[in-house]
Amino acid sequence: MSSAPATLVGTPSARRTPSRRRSAIGWTAARTAAVAIGALFLMAPFVIMVTTSFEPNTALLPNPPHFLPQNPTIANYVDAWTGSDFAQYFVNSAYVSVLTTLAAVAISAMTAFAFARFDFPGKNVVYAVLLAGLMIPGIVIIVPQFILAKSLGMLDSLNGLVFFYTAGQIAFTTFMLRAFFERVPTELDEAMTVDGAGTWRKFVRLYLPLARPALATAAVFAFLGAWDEYVWALTVISDASKRTLPLGIAAFQGEHSTAWGLVFAASTIAVIPVVAVYIAGQRHLIAGITAGAVK
């Protein structure tokens, strides 16, 4: 899926002499080998997690961990899925994460556009306050936030989660998108002004398309952030039917012993959608590259 458009991007091969092409092949092989070795290191803990999830459920984690399952079984997956309302948690998480991603990226893109594109009085002060929001750890403001959520009637509510997750992503996503919007060439902007385009039109027709790789990246992170969030969900969600996946997984961790097989199976299931979203985002990353190459 990625290889077709990707080939458009590379250095045009027509200019290469045969000897340069041969060295290019050697270079690609070396690169691939380096990347493969790095991937092995990065994958190891994940492989252990998946392996253990296919072993008979144990209260104690195997030490040293196994790279290949012993007595493989899918019992943990069956138990994790059927033992609790896991399907419900999954749906809840998907609902919250998709809405959060859409809202956070749309709202942050507009905010980032304002900061990247315009000079206006008070800009730097407001931006500094926004950045300060990134530096104060969430755990410190969780009590005032909880009181606020209660007065807004957002306890035990999935839409309440969406509201706070979206708000929580804005500072970061704005920070990230601003850097990308600032790289849009001024000449392109001016050319559209000459053509009589208004600000909104420029935002939609010029800035958003050019920032597609950045928007895709922001969406991937926003989704992951909402999908993985635990502490806020724990604090505001009590009703079991409103639980998200991280709450469901944490429930397998007992006070004195943890059913690691279940935790690992549930964690493995939980990884799948985030990876799917990332793969979907890949297409846009590549599309962004080709769009840039046209210039």
Partner: peptide, 26 residues
């Protein structure tokens, strides 16, 4: 390294993303 075309690039990109999405507890 991952930016330029190479065999199985999308697969590698996914593999490099795996640690980010694996739970802190695990």
């Amino acid at each position: 390294l991952l930016h330029r075309p190479m065999p199985a690039r999308t697969l590698f990109r996914v593999l490099y993303y795996i640690p980010v999405v694996t739970s802190w507890v695990v």
